[in-house]
Simulated scan of single mutants.
Amino acid sequence: MNTHTLFTVGHSTHPPDYFLDLLKKHGITCLIDVRSVAASAYNPQFNKEPLSAFLKKNGITYLHFAKEFGARHTDPTLLDENSKVDFEKVRNSDDFKSGVKRVIQGFKKGFVIALMCSEAEPIDCHRFSMVSVALQRLGFDVQHILKDSTLLTNVQLEKALLKKFHKKLPVPTVFDPDVSIQDQITVAYHLKNQEIAFSPYTHDSEEKI
Rank of each mutant, 00 (worst) to 15 (best):
Q182A: 10
Y201M: 00
L22Q: 04
S129D: 04
R35E: 12
H73N: 13
L162M: 07
C30S: 04
F69Y: 12
Q136P: 00
V85I: 12
I32Y: 09
V37Y: 14
G106S: 14
K97W: 03
Q136A: 12
G27M: 10
M1C: 06
K163T: 15
M130W: 08
I181K: 14
V187Y: 04
L63S: 08
G99C: 01
P16V: 08
I181L: 14
D95G: 01
H166G: 01
D17Y: 04
C117S: 07
K208Q: 10
C125S: 11
H166Y: 09
S93L: 09
D80A: 01
I181H: 13
G27A: 11
V37E: 14
N154W: 03
Q105W: 00
A39K: 15
A160M: 12
K67F: 01
K163M: 11
D176H: 13
G139N: 06
T5E: 14
N92C: 10
R127A: 05
F165S: 07
T74K: 14
H166L: 03
L23A: 03
G70V: 06
Q136M: 12
G59I: 15
L135D: 00
D141S: 06
D95N: 08
T186H: 06
K25Q: 12
L162R: 05
Q182N: 13
Q136K: 14
P200W: 02
A114T: 08
N154S: 14
N2K: 11
Q194W: 05
D94M: 00
T150Y: 08
M130T: 05
G139S: 05
C30T: 02
D21R: 07
D178E: 15
L169K: 11
L55M: 07
P76M: 10
D124T: 04
I32S: 07
R35F: 03
F46Y: 13
G10V: 01
T77F: 02
A39H: 14
N47D: 15
V100M: 06
F65Q: 08
L146V: 05
V9N: 12
S180A: 05
G139K: 06
P172M: 11
F19Q: 10
Q194I: 03
Q182S: 10
V112Y: 02
L157W: 07
Y189Q: 09
F54I: 04
A114D: 08
I60C: 06
G70Q: 11
L157A: 04
D183M: 04
K48E: 15
V85W: 08
G10Q: 06
K84I: 02
M130G: 05
F87T: 05
L63E: 15
Y189G: 02
K24V: 07
F165W: 15
E49P: 01
F128L: 12
D148T: 11
A114C: 06
K57A: 13
C125N: 11
L169H: 11
A188H: 12
T77Y: 01
D178F: 08
V90R: 03
A134K: 15
S129R: 04
L151Y: 13
H166F: 08
I185F: 10
H144D: 12
V37D: 09
T8N: 03
P122Y: 07
F96W: 02
T153C: 04
C117Y: 03
L151C: 13
L151W: 14
T202N: 09
C125L: 11
I181T: 14
K67E: 15
A114V: 05
